[in-house]
């Protein structure tokens, strides 16, 4: 796909939502010679700062290649002074070309001021595409369980990488589909660790893991610990957590066997190995897949359902005080 270029843009301050929706239709007509995309969802990003909004916008545009969506970036500003309508908005129609097909897609940014910022459900509703899922993404914060917008969301995307208090998230996950981007980024790691126990002769060791050593950065490391703890029945006393730049998981079965997945220093490669009775019984080198935000968001949008294993991992992480 060629880089998208802005074909037409509009910006309004203190405008009503009706005006924004009408403007969107007018801008579309002005570039009517190009075909609109086939949508599969409405994707709403809730950003709490200009920086966050900018980042989210960049990611959402890149994401369009995999998940054609109407993009809505909402910046709630409850403390801002409200003028005539309380909403500033911009609408941009982008054009691009895919295999010779001219395509357009639109992107709406809304700055919602004052009390309206506490009623984002009513703000988002006019922009949602009928009959298609509404996915709400919180790029850098976790939503309050009482947030009214969540009632409109088919799925909620969050990132627990930097999160401390996830108790509310656990409660929310019990009520609707929540997808954690941090969990998505861990998916290749989980696959590689799980693959060590795929051979039938190694399978019995999975039930006999006596200790685990998990290194990595804060949130993901603790999520990995919660996952291993909940799946293998390991108490927190049998797990060591280390702070490290690159992830590394070592599972030991007494003194007889150890299973390790570790990133190669300085390379995007992961080495997986199994040592049993002092003998290397398995050795594998795997490329580390993309772990960019675009990739993890794309993965999240591909796996929008509820994930009980993640819920259990999150809960186990909290129970083990791993989230403190």
């Amino acid at each position: 796909m060629a880089d998208a270029v802005a074909l037409n843009r509009w910006y309004g301050t203190e405008v009503g939502l009706g005006a924004v929706v009408d403007t969107m239709a007018q801008l579309r007509r002005s570039v009517a010679r190009t075909a609109s995309r086939t949508w599969v969802m409405t994707l709403v990003a809730i950003a709490v700062s200009d920086d966050e909004a900018y980042q989210a916008t960049q990611v959402l545009r890149a994401l369009g290649a995999h998940h054609p969506a109407r993009l809505l970036v909402v910046q709630p500003q409850p403390e801002a002074v409200v003028g005539a309508a309380g909403i500033d908005a911009s609408v941009t129609i982008y054009g691009t070309e895919v295999d010779g097909h001219p395509l357009t897609f639109d992107e709406v940014s809304l700055w919602v001021k004052g009390e309206a910022a506490r009623h984002l459900d009513s703000i988002v509703e006019p922009f949602t595409l009928s009959d298609l899922p509404v996915v709400v993404w919180y790029p850098a914060s976790l939503p309050a369980v009482s947030e009214p917008l969540l009632a409109k969301a088919s799925s909620v995307l969050v990132d627990t990488r930097e999160a401390h208090d996830v108790a509310g998230l656990i409660a929310l996950a019990g009520r609707r589909a929540v997808v954690d981007l941090s969990w998505m980024r861990l998916r290749p790691w989980r696959e590689m660790v799980a693959a060590l126990f795929d051979p039938p002769e190694f399978r019995p060791y999975a039930r006999q893991i006596t200790s685990a050593s998990i290194a990595g950065k804060g949130g993901p490391r603790r999520l990995l610990a919660g996952w291993l703890g909940s799946r293998l029945g390991l108490s927190k006393e049998r797990m060591e957590l280390h702070d490290a730049r690159h992830a590394r998981v070592v599972l030991r079965s007494g003194s007889t066997a150890s299973f390790e997945v570790a990133r190669e220093e300085g390379e995007r490669l992961v080495r997986a190995s199994a040592v049993i009775d002092g003998e290397i019984r398995h050795h594998e080198l795997l490329p580390l897949p993309d772990d960019s935000l675009v990739w993890s968001l794309s993965e999240a949008l591909t796996h929008l359902g509820r994930d009980r294993v993640w819920q259990q991992a999150l809960a186990a992480g909290v129970a083990a005080d791993a989230w403190l």
């Binding site: 989980r190 696959e191 126990f197 999975a206 039930r207 799946r231 009775d277």
Partner: peptide, 19 residues
């Protein structure tokens, strides 16, 4: 050591949709 094969499910594969 002779390794014993097992047909029981891999507990770490749950949720990974590796069908």
């Amino acid at each position: 050591m002779t390794l014993t094969e097992s047909t029981e499910a891999n507990p770490l594969a749950a949720g990974l949709d590796q069908g």
